[in-house]
């Protein structure tokens, strides 16, 4: 990852909510806003945003992806920073948009400039804003799943863990193979559901062996998949997005409820 100049407070940040947070888990959006504001940012939520275009990109529809990507860049490029509570969507905006426009003059340079503004939430907090502590308290034994796109496209690994360690009362316990895929893969989970089921079962076994109260990750796709499997298996382990814990916003029910 390139070196980032540390910017002082009151940076103008646009929140890329992500379609899954918008639809399934608004709390993650509000938690992101709180974390950014607590760190001194002015947070904007452009109302014209919809989705990053990843479903089209991974289904082979380059034209639809380009249309959607142009829309995202146009809406967001005027902000100093663009932050998403998802390694997958941030990776799409930061890495894949550049690939998408590589052979299109004007848009290739716009996509490149845009990419330099885009960050995943925990990476932005720690690496750009220099946050080391959050004001949060949660008495819980926690394990953290590394989402693939965040881990391998954006090097998100230590950032959420560093912040979690500052949460009062929280203890972090690593599971086996935390870097292994959970089997979500977008439409993969439905198109190849048996294989996806095998992979997520390995994941939930590794989670169960760690005996946590709470599973955290930075991507809602993985979280819906893992929570869905854990609850299908009758597990008592609760599931939340890491931003909810860091923002001290765990009053509401966890993902897929509580037993």
């Amino acid at each position: 990852m390139s070196k980032i100049d540390k910017k002082g407070p009151s940076s103008k940040v646009a929140l890329f909510v992500t379609c899954l947070v918008d639809l399934f888990r608004p709390t993650v959006g509000f938690a992101s806003i709180k974390l950014l504001e607590d760190a001194g940012c002015q947070v904007h939520v452009p109302v014209r945003q919809t989705c990053c275009g990843q479903p089209a990109w991974n289904s082979g529809s380059r034209k639809d992806t380009r249309d959607i990507a142009k829309q995202v860049i146009t809406i967001f490029e005027k902000y100093e920073y663009v932050v998403a509570p998802s390694g997958s969507c941030a990776g799409m905006l930061k890495v894949h948009y550049q690939e998408l426009f590589r052979d299109i003059p004007e848009w290739d340079s716009r996509a490149e400039r845009f990419a330099s503004k885009v960050f995943e939430l925990t990476s932005f907090l720690t690496e750009v804003l220099g946050v080391t502590n959050v004001k949060a308290k949660l008495n819980s034994r926690v394990t953290y799943h590394d989402s693939c796109a965040g881990l391998r496209e954006l090097n998100i690994s230590d950032q959420p863990r560093k912040l979690l360690k500052s949460v009062d009362g929280l203890s972090l316990h690593e599971m086996n193979d935390s870097e292994a895929c959970c089997g979500f893969g977008g439409t993969f989970a439905v198109k190849y559901s048996e294989i996806s089921n095998f992979i997520v079962t390995e994941k939930t076994e590794n989670i169960e062996r760690t005996e946590p109260d709470l599973l955290l990750a930075g991507d809602l796709g993985c979280l819906l998949n893992i929570a869905g499997k854990l609850k299908y298996q009758g597990s008592k382990i609760e599931v939340r997005h890491v931003a909810e814990v860091l923002a001290n916003m765990c009053e509401g029910k966890p993902i897929a409820g509580r037993d």
Partner: peptide, 27 residues
């Protein structure tokens, strides 16, 4: 907060439940 069966999404619900949305959208 759980959906056990959903038409069009059997591939998902055959092996997992679908966590239900919180309610209204973020927007």
């Amino acid at each position: 907060k759980r959906i056990n069966k959903l038409p069009m999404a059997e591939g998902w619900t055959k092996h997992r439940i679908l966590p239900a949305p919180e309610g209204a959208t973020f927007m």
